[in-house]
Design a protein around this nucleic acid. Structure first.
Lengths: 165, 165
DNA sequence: TCTAACCTTAACGTTAACGGCAAGGATGTG
DNA sequence: CACATCCTTGCCGTTAACGTTAAGGTTAGA
């Protein structure tokens, strides 16, 4: 077992691809594939061209996974959503490179607009899902109605099949 | 006691695949593919083995499309959700074939359970999406915080965030 | 009846999203 | 320094979800 801590010589907490895989639950192949698609930037490379990932990259990968698994977005759609995120990261350096309050304001407001768009996209999906739930509830109510009729103990009206929806 | 309806010798409003396609926005190939996967039953066939669809089939296809596009479920997952729906349709004939109130109750309660499971599945997805929205709101709040600092005057507090690179 | 427009099955092609090698270089540990 | 592990870049294989002919049967209208 190694007893010396990693001395903070230069950059700390940079992970190699296998550790990132264990951390995110994505396979190394998938991570490389996402980079190939442009969803991720290499973060950094070691002397021997090993990929090195920082915490921001992990967050980004988890975000991608969430959009993919939980939201069911395609990688193309995720690419759109991440274009926003990517611009946000680029804005960080721009942000630090200026002290002009007006420009900083503009950058921040731009970033906020991007986040708002992400939220709107997700909200649209939620709305549709809720509409489907509402339909399901309608079906359920219909069944409950039948049940009540039976409990009332009689043959109900002819019920000429479904009417309009 | 109930007098019989007019004999439905020939069922009306049965659509052919192209009309169904126009009606649902799915291609004919897709509709046949869904049947091939078992997501849909042929409804009926003409003398020359043309597929004929009734209104229930249209509803089912729209439901499938909603699960696919809006909810982002795979066709395999949709198959699971529809197993419930399919059983529901089968139950209809069983339902009509009995007059035993107890059995009718059982069938209806079973159907309600299936609907409830569909709702739960959809709700799970909504919950995850809302969690992602919450994260986005957190990012937004962070940005707003920065903005407030700028508006309050130049250099803000040290800000022990992860601003170190 | 004849034909244009629709339908059938069968089979091969395509794209997205990876999985799985293979050949060779990089790293760290005894 | 030797060796076991990692990593790299290809490149081919696979599955899902269709698209696209091809070859031929069916329907409805003039």
């Amino acid at each position: 077992m190694t007893h010396l801590d990693a001395p903070p010589t230069t950059e700390p907490d940079l992970l190699r691809i296998h550790e990132v895989s264990a951390e995110t639950g994505l396979t190394t192949r998938t991570i490389r594939y996402y980079e190939e698609l442009g969803l991720l930037k290499p973060a950094a490379r070691s002397e021997g061209s090993y990929r090195l990932f920082d915490p921001d990259d992990l967050e980004r990968l988890r975000f991608i996974k969430g959009l993919r698994d939980d939201a069911g977005f395609s990688l193309a759609e995720i690419g759109q959503l991440l274009e926003d995120d990517l611009a946000r990261v680029r804005n960080r350096s721009r942000f630090r490179s200026t002290t002009d309050a007006t420009e900083r304001r503009a950058i921040l407001e731009d970033a906020m607009g991007r986040v708002d768009r992400q939220v709107a996209t997700l909200q649209t999906k939620i709305d549709r899902l809720e509409a489907m739930i509402a339909e399901a509830h309608a079906r359920r109510a219909h069944l409950e109605n039948h049940l009540a009729e039976i409990d009332a103990g009689a043959e109900p009206a002819p019920h000429a099949h479904e009417s309009r929806r």
